[in-house]
């Protein structure tokens, strides 16, 4: 359903909030990197491209109609710097489907920030946004990415082999998904 959350969203260690114009350098610090872009659709972004992306994101803070996306900066609560970003896209209004995404700065990997922030996005999607199913996808070679999805309690639903070309090569892609009922039972089992 239509959704305009009150920001920031807080987790134990993190603050999730809309992007602002002052975030360009912090975003460029990770979106400009080759290793970060390897499995993303976009190539490494220039500072100007980051500025443009952030301009778009300043309005990507709620759901009004199908295709809308919420893209949020992730910060540590005790620190100002951005450690990464998370997103939720409203893929189908009728079937209440959402797609989850995340990108984190490699300097902040391995601390559980991505797990904490994406869990907050699942709570947003299944809670206030009233979604029925949330899915995410990744390149099959991106092991940390699908490990994260398994930690979130998502099931591997698809393993596509060579179903498209990706950056000049045959792709191999995983789809993971979680249903509302599965999310509920995870939250209730603690």
């Amino acid at each position: 359903m239509a959704l305009h959350p009150d920001y920031p969203l807080l987790t134990a260690r993190l603050r999730l909030r809309p992007f602002t114009r002052g975030d360009v350098d912090a975003v460029h610090a990770y979106r400009g990197r080759e290793d970060v872009a390897r499995y993303l659709f976009d190539p490494p972004l220039s500072r100007d491209e980051c500025a443009l992306a952030i301009q778009q994101r300043s309005t990507q803070t709620g759901f009004l109609e199908e295709g809308d996306r919420i893209v949020l900066a992730v910060e540590k609560r005790d620190d100002e710097g951005i450690v990464g970003e998370v997103s939720l896209i409203w893929r189908s209004v009728e079937a209440r489907q959402g797609e989850l995404g995340w990108i984190f700065h490699p300097d902040h990997h391995g601390r559980g920030y991505a797990t904490e922030a994406t869990n907050a996005m699942l709570d947003l999607g299944f809670g206030p946004a009233d979604l029925h199913r949330i899915f995410a996808r990744c390149d099959a070679r991106n092991v940390p990415s699908w490990r994260l999805m398994e930690r979130l309690g998502m099931r591997r639903e698809a393993h596509f082999r060579e179903h498209a070309r990706f950056k000049g090569e045959w792709d191999e892609e995983f789809y993971y998904a979680i249903l509302r009922d599965e999310w509920l039972s995870l939250r209730h089992s603690g």
């Binding site: 189908s92 079937a95 489907q97 029925h132 199913r133 899915f135 639903e157 698809a158 393993h159 596509f160 082999r161 179903h163 789809y175 998904a177 249903l179």
Partner: peptide
């Protein structure tokens, strides 16, 4: 390759 549950 894929087993979608309740995706539509």
């Amino acid at each position: 390759e894929a087993h979608y549950r309740e995706h539509a």
